[in-house]
Design a protein around this nucleic acid. Structure first.
Lengths: 162, 162
DNA sequence: TCTCAAATGTTATGATATCACATATGGAGC
DNA sequence: GCTCCATATGTGATATCATAACATTTGAGA
């Protein structure tokens, strides 16, 4: 399953690849990946845990890219609306998408101990939820699927998953 | 599927039955359903859409049951932690549980037009999410499943789903 | 070069949630 | 009945998350 992000990986390379994929997508879809938007995406990509909007803003402020909340929220709106990032409702935080440009319903595995977040795929129209929806005539347009628990490393009984 | 709440029903009776079920559960589990907690539950039960904490607080304030945010948040903590109510993360709002006392993972169908919310059951350990979790060694303890879309009535093309 | 839409800068405020500490309530043991 | 203590509530202040409103800048195309 290539969507699980708990294992070790070449992080620098994964960031570069993600940026490249987003750039390509913006190119073909005539979207503006402006400096602020690009930088917010980079900040998100540099972590595999979710970041609060104000944490991102702190970094932008240091770099002179903006100091007020609307700056970061607008950049996040752009990234989220085009599927380059996702909001984790449970955490009121944001995370870069691990497969940008592809249409998908993300599902998240959130470690409550080390705060790592892995993205998987959800199938909101299948399973009991999909059946309940179709039985009642509800039309699902969008879904939030977020599981909280322990990631493999934190589950091992290690004192910390740093 | 008795967990779908979009159809018409005897609302007064459903509220009474829910209160009775919660009372019974508190009785057997030595939990205190204090006046504030009971009233918050009633306020939630009187709707089939989610209510924000401050909306609930407005009602409590009028009734002299408390006027500060911690009052309502503490009552909600009690209700949510014992499964008598759920938080809808997507809406930052709360809703009474439709089958209190039973251990379950709720899933919600949220109408974006009329704000009605129906509760269904989720199976977080099944489907692709469960497989992704077990494949990676993630242990799911809790899950948020919330679908946004159109309820049967709003989907009919009616001007409103009042 | 002009124009206009898109993006950004900035001030202020709204909405959601918690902390910290004081006070009250109610049952267990004496 | 009284004391002790855990639980619950009252209250003021504040933290955290998010958006409204409007001015200014930028950049692609006429």
């Amino acid at each position: 399953m290539d969507t699980i992000g708990f294992e070790q990986h070449d992080h620098k390379r994964c960031v570069q690849a993600a940026i490249a994929a987003v750039e390509a997508h913006c190119e073909t879809h005539r979207l503006h990946l402006t400096p602020v938007r690009r930088r917010v995406l980079e900040i998100l990509l540099n972590r595999h845990s979710a970041l609060g909007a104000y944490e991102i803003l702190d970094t932008l402020r240091v770099e002179g890219l903006g100091s007020q909340p609307p700056v970061v929220y607008r950049a996040l709106d752009f990234l989220v609306s085009h599927g380059f990032a996702h909001k984790i409702e449970r955490l009121n935080a944001f995370i870069a998408c691990t497969h940008p440009g592809q249409d998908h319903t993300p599902a998240f595995l959130i470690c409550r101990r080390c705060d790592a977040v892995a993205e998987a795929h959800a199938e909101p129209t299948k399973g009991m939820l999909g059946r309940a929806a179709s039985d009642s005539g509800f039309v699902i347009e969008q879904a939030v699927v977020e599981a909280v628990g322990l990631c493999p490393r934190c589950h091992e009984g290690a004192p910390s998953c740093a």
